[in-house]
Design a protein around this nucleic acid. Structure first.
Length: 557
RNA sequence: GCGCCUGUAGCUCAGGGGAUAGAGCAUCGGACUUCUAAUCCGAGUGCCGCAGGUUCGAUUCCUGCCAGGCGCGCCA
């Protein structure tokens, strides 16, 4: 037996064979046979698969499309399909036989939550970097969006046969970390009763004050430190504390990284010097205006980039190049960075860097997320980082909950600018679509609990006469499950997690409809058994969908 | 000025070289003595931003324009 995706591939090959035969017989005047593509029609009246090949070939063959289609159809005779027909302007529609669909149920029960796994990734070693918020403040809602999308993408890609590692890059060495350290020190000293002017460019947020208070209660002989040592202390202690907070918030959100990579490590290891020497040796560097430049325009960037500033310090680009070099040297074949919209200008320079390092431009893939506009009572929530007023990721989770927040982000395509209505998400949480899917799962659990209590076990799918399943609702559910592995593969391949959220909604809808129209418990034995097998399979697939989304699968609601 | 993203139903958004362009919300009308009504069934709405081009076929691809969001640092 096979999944729908494999079935589709086989069918495409059979069509190609049929075409070659027709050409050999002289019935079809063609020089070559193109690759046959199959689609899953939107309208289920058009079958499970459809091919437009006859219309593509009509012109080169100088024949009406329906005639070309007829030549193909008469050469196809496959028991997997109960109907193959020419339709519309020349489509060939294929309808899977019920036997094939019934076999799928057994397959799902055997595979359990491995159903959906596939191999489009072919073991490619991928490093997925996302969120990477600076450790100088709380995470924002775009970070929350990135976390949901990155985490589910990682789950999807693992299911699709990629070898995925996730990483959070910590900018703990730059100017912003210094400013943050000085802000913290100023607050700390103020608490000690000293008259200290808060740095003009410092971070005004209340969280800095809170950190300073926490620091007061810790054992640290700050007064004994010299100037340099003290600055280092505040920066280190502060970013450590922020990092710990971020790690905890993300874990509450269901997002756990394989590795937190600190920029300061790169500096300690001399990684920046290493790439500078490398680029110098390859002639990609030049000096101008007292600074050292990387000739990135040589690799398609808009302008060259400063690597060492006039004052002798490095720019963030330098560390980023070193970081990407480090990722590549660790054996990751594909680097995926998920970034906010303010970083789109970053793509050109980093691709240039990757190329200069001796890798293909395509080794780096950058996904740019768009902004999230928060609405409350229909009004856009104005945020000011300067004034220290903004909705943090944690505020968002407190207000709408983890499942709703994740799902809301995952429903939208990554590049859409999205409106997040807090009032709606919080007050009308009953109507949040995520509950629609969870409710389907809870309904099944409740039903199976009652079956169990009544001494009705889950029947062995191979021992049940599944042709008791005859209703459209029943067969639609199975067809939808047949599409699942391909859906996982597509979502991973195109890096579009929202496909999964949509699939979940559609699938849950089919189940609710089935539930309303077809009773399970108390039906005559054959029907009850067959439907239990069906419902059991639906439960498995729902669990998998929710698991990939990182959303809970409640057993009751 | 240059770059990225967006423009589809009243609202929020999917879709996508093909067959009557979809969902949720909102509006209206039905369905609970039976496995959870957080559910189901039914009803309507669209110059798919505008104009050209490619194609057997464009809402989808290309170009230009218009509108909105965001970038364009020796900040990250």
């Amino acid at each position: 037996m096979s999944t729908a995706a494999e079935q589709k591939e086989k069918l495409a090959q059979k069509i190609e064979t049929a075409l070659r035969e027709a050409v050999a017989c002289g019935e079809l005047p063609l020089d070559s046979v193109p690759k046959v593509e199959l689609e899953i029609p939107r309208d289920k009246d058009h079958g499970d698969f459809a091919s437009n090949i006859a219309m593509v070939l009509a012109k080169p063959a100088k024949m009406p499309p329906r005639s070309v289609a007829a030549l193909i159809v008469k050469r196809l005779d496959d028991p997997m399909f109960e109907r193959v027909e020419v339709a519309g302007p020349g489509f060939i529609n294929f309808k899977l036989s019920r036997e094939w669909l019934f076999d799928l149920l057994g397959r799902i029960h055997r595979q359990q939550e491995a159903y959906g796994d596939n191999d489009v990734g072919q073991g490619e070693k991928v490093l997925l970097e996302f969120v990477s918020a600076n450790p100088v403040g709380p995470m924002n809602v775009v970070n929350a969006r990135a976390a949901a999308i990155g985490d589910t993408l990682a789950r999807l890609m693992r299911a699709a046969g990629y070898d995925v590692a996730t990483e959070y890059y910590v900018n703990d060495a730059g100017k912003q970390a210094d400013i943050f350290g000085r802000s913290l020190e100023a607050r700390y000293r103020q608490l000690q009763g000293e008259e200290v002017v808060f740095p003009a460019d410092g971070y005004p947020g209340k969280y800095v004050q809170a950190l300073a208070e926490k620091l007061q209660n810790e054992e640290a002989d700050i007064d004994a430190m010299d100037e340099q040592r003290r600055q280092e202390f505040f920066r280190q202690w502060g970013t450590d504390a922020m990092l710990e907070m971020q790690r905890r918030d993300l874990a509450d959100y269901g997002v756990v990284f394989d590795r937190w990579f600190r920029e300061s490590e790169l500096h300690k290891q001399g990684s920046l010097e290493e790439i500078i020497e490398l680029f110098k040796g390859r002639g990609y560097m030049y000096e101008d205006d007292g600074a050292l430049w990387f000739r990135s325009t040589q690799f398609g960037d808009d302008k060259d980039r400063v690597i060492i500033k006039q004052d002798g310090s490095y720019t963030y680009v330098t560390a980023d190049i070193a970081y990407h070099y480090d990722k590549l040297k660790r054996g990751h074949e594909k680097l995926i960075d998920i970034l906010g919209p303010d970083h789109h200008g970053y793509i050109g320079r980093m691709k240039a860097a990757v190329e200069a390092l001796g890798y293909g431009r395509d080794a780096l893939e950058v996904m740019i997320l768009q902004y999230v506009a928060l609405l409350r009572d229909g009004q856009q929530v104005k945020m000011s980082k300067r004034a220290g007023e903004f909705i943090t990721m944690q505020d968002l989770l407190d207000e709408v909950g983890r499942d709703a927040a994740r799902f809301f982000f995952l429903m939208r395509s990554p590049e859409s600018h999205l409106d997040f209505d807090l009032t709606l998400a919080a007050e009308q949480s009953n109507e949040n679509p995520v509950f629609y899917i969870q409710y389907a799962h809870a309904r099944i659990c409740s039903m199976l609990r009652q079956a169990h209590d009544a001494g009705i076990p889950m029947p062995d799918s191979s021992a049940v006469a599944l042709d008791a399943l005859q209703h459209g609702e029943e067969l639609d559910l199975i067809r939808k499950m047949a599409e699942f592995p391909e859906e996982v593969a597509a979502a991973a391949w195109y890096r579009e997690p929202h496909r999964l959220a949509r699939y979940g909604l559609d699938f849950a809808g089919l189940f609710h409809s089935f539930y309303t129209h077809c009773r399970v418990l108390g039906e005559e034995r054959e029907v009850q058994d067959a439907r239990l097998v069906l419902v059991g399979a639906v439960q498995i697939v729902l669990r998998r969908v929710l698991g990939l989304l990182g959303v809970g699968a409640p057993e009751s609601m």
